[in-house]
Amino acid sequence: MASLKELSKRKEGLVAGHRLCAGCGEGIAVRQVLLAAPRPLVCAVATGCLEVSTTVYPYTSWNCSLIHTAFENAAATISGVEAAFEALKARRKIGEDFHFIAFGGDGATYDIGLQALSGALERRHRFLYVCLDNGAYMNTGIQRSGATPLGAWTTTTPVGKKEPGKLEWRKNLTAIAAAHDGTYVAQTTISHWKDLTQKVEKALSYNGPSFINILAPCPRGWRTKESQTVRIARLAVETCYWPLFEVENGKWQINFQPREKKPIEEWLKLQGRFKHLFKEENRPVIEKIQNYIDTEWEKLLALSSL
């Protein structure tokens, strides 16, 4: 596994000049992924913030080959690239060994692209799918997705007299990916660069499909300070909102156990999207969230002790 020093000497995969917002968690995540990824490499990206901000024609921020086609199909697109590679290699038209990564936001992955992702995992293409989970459709202006946490304000779950933000729980996409037997699956985030880069190295050395879900805070959508992105990611881990774990050969393993689980309030209060929850009448919602996190954490502990 590469050390920080080694990583720092590598060529950047995503170079300066892109137009992601200041403090964007996606940019940080992609840079970490690309630093850990061996070359040569082909990436696919779903429509979303990452794509529109890094490929403004005639410029590109990508140092490796990249393909964008549409919103819901990054997994299908990269599976075609991988199949082409296998076909051309078998015909001896290509000598080098390539690696393949697809990037999609949570909208592109939890929702509209879930079928394409599931299909590509089931077909066992040799590729890594990275979900950049910022908890909403950010590119189109902060609409709720299947990844948006309960209680969060978004532009389609506004805080009104009757509804205090999103009413439903988020879906557990990492567990859904893990249900595809024989897939290397992990959850990580940008505050834990070592955990993240090691998981990417592992995924890309794996002879089969892999999936990594990366929490990528969004200052615009979460209503947070640009300087706090990494801190908010870390707190998500320390509160057990976003546990770091991996599933390998059916074995679940927690990669970080906080000595003391921090109360979820600490994470919520830094984010404007949860501001309304701190009003007296919404207090029960915070309690509900805390209970939910506790239950999920217990479930994960049980899974990892199997």
């Binding site: 794509e51 005639p58 490796c64 080959s65 990249l66 393909i67 964008h68």
Partner: peptide
């Protein structure tokens, strides 16, 4: 390396 399908 090429970028295919950029944003315009």
């Amino acid at each position: 390396p090429v970028t295919v399908g950029p944003f315009d």
